[in-house]
Design a protein around this nucleic acid. Structure first.
Length: 420
RNA sequence: GUGACUGUAGCUCAGCUGGCAGAGCGUCUGACUGUGGAUCAGAUGGUCGUGGGUUCAAAUCCCACCAGUCACCCCA
């Protein structure tokens, strides 16, 4: 037997009701904010991610599905959604339509990682990008939008964390402060952190090792090292959040895994999720477009993980819309009934009803059993008797009551049952 | 990439001091010849994850690999 690849899943049945709910909610809310959907390829030139996401990141170093096509081009299944949208923005000259440009996307992304709860190799993200505004107004809109999505999904047990990692001017100062702080403590840290001290010192801040945690509290805070412009930007965002009633927690140690972030970073975590608890993550990336060869353009956005939101919905026991059931089953008792049955099924479907008809040539008893399992609401029975007398038998599967309806009225009779 | 735990019927699992591969649920059929849900009966269903080893004999013991789950790492 051939199994699905590691870290992938088949989505079907009842599970999909969560997915439909999330996808529809995302589309509904982004539409209200006037974001336009963009669908980019699932694979891109490998260079896009090397330059966009950053050569030093874990994503690029060990998580990309990279392959060569028959023309010798190096391609990569997208490991995230932002770089492709920025590429499309540059390539299609969207700036010609004026700024800001606001895009939404939803689809699969791929990272070669060891699967665990809330982490798959092929997983699904929804996200938005707001391109062109350097102001905290834009950061605020994007955060407001993320919160609106979660609220519309009827989720409650989430928390917004706001950080600011500065810009290319002030971040080096902060990095230095961190080094000064950790240097004398180096031999008290875990092995990984001793390595990270040189490779990616920001990561020392969210190490979960018990040896390292005590030092994190006292570690320098990003907020204390912001330059004047970053400070102003930060204060402005906080003002909006405070005035417009968005609950958040400041996190001066919030760092993110992708290199392109500048200034505002944020994460929304759900309390029920265990270790993979970030359901939405985002921030500002003012240097990304320029890095990819476009004209320097500030941007901000976020991405959310659908699998994790599904878990959150389940854990919070949110009532999500049910999948539709079969509404009418047409039981066919002999071959003479076959044609009238087909005609009725087509007419009812034409009126918008979900109709199933016997395809297995089963006897009446087994057709009833099958209809019962479909959870269908009405069964129309057509047999020799009915054909001769020009009527159809309609059975209400809930009450068990049965009535004969003249064939002239059958269609309207059933349609009316589903109105009101 | 590292670690822990787990792989037996479609599903949930028992069998594990080595000795004929089992149960419940599901599915199909019948009791009920034109009527579902309840009940009863019968049937269907297995590469015991894969490969090797030990043994007269392996689902059971040993080794390797594969897969799943959770955690590390990292992130949505």
């Amino acid at each position: 037997m051939i199994n699905r690849p590691k870290g992938t899943t088949d989505l079907f049945g009842e599970e999909l009701k969560y997915w439909y709910f999330i996808e529809e909610t995302f589309k509904k809310v982004t539409k209200l904010y006037n974001y336009r959907e963009i669908r980019t390829p699932i694979f891109e030139a490998t260079d896009l991610f090397l330059r966009g996401v950053g050569e030093e990141t874990d994503i690029v170093q060990k998580q990309m599905y990279t392959f060569e096509d028959k023309g010798g081009r190096s391609l990569t299944l997208r490991p995230e959604g932002t770089a492709p949208v920025m590429r499309a923005y540059i390539e299609n000259s969207f700036m010609k339509d004026g700024l800001p440009q606001k895009f939404s996307y939803i689809g699969p992304v791929f990272r070669y990682e060891k699967p665990q709860a809330g982490r798959m190799r092929q997983f699904y993200q929804f996200g938005v990008e707001l391109i062109g505004s350097p102001y905290a107004l834009a950061d605020f809109e994007v955060i407001r939008l993320a919160i609106d999505i979660l609220n519309t999904l009827n989720l409650h047990n989430y928390k917004l964390y706001i950080g600011n990692i500065g810009c290319k001017n002030c971040r080096p100062k902060y990095r230095e402060a961190l080094k000064d702080y950790y240097q004398p403590k180096l031999n008290q840290l875990c092995f990984d952190c001793q390595k990270r001290f040189n490779t990616n010192i920001l990561r020392l801040l969210d190490c979960k090792n018990e040896k390292c945690k005590p030092f994190q509290k006292e570690a320098p805070n990003t907020f204390d090292y912001l330059c004047d412009d970053c400070r102003k930007h930060f204060d402005e965002l906080i003002l909006y959040l405070d005035e417009l009633d968005i609950n958040y927690e400041l996190d001066g140690h919030l760092v993110r895994g992708l290199d392109y972030y500048t200034r505002t970073v944020f994460e929304i975590k759900h309390s029920s999720l265990g270790t993979q608890d970030t359901i939405i993550g985002g921030g500002r990336y003012d240097g990304l477009i320029e890095e990819l060869g476009g004209k320097s353009t500030p941007s901000v956005g976020f991405a959310g993980g659908i699998e994790r939101v599904v878990l959150a919905l389940k854990n919070e026991n949110v009532n999500v819309p049910k999948l539709p059931n079969c509404q009418v089953y047409i039981a066919v008792l002999n071959e003479k009934a076959r044609m009238p049955a087909f005609k009725l099924s087509q007419n009812l479907r034409g009126r918008g009803l979900i109709v199933e008809i016997d395809l297995m040539k089963r006897n009446i008893r087994n057709q009833m059993k099958y209809a019962n399992r479909l959870n269908t609401q009405y069964v129309v029975i057509i047999g020799e008797d009915e054909i001769e007398r020009g009527v159809f038998t309609v059975r209400d599967m809930e009450t068990g009551q049965q009535i004969e309806v003249d064939e002239k009225w059958i269609e309207n009779y059933i349609v009316e049952k589903f109105e009101g």
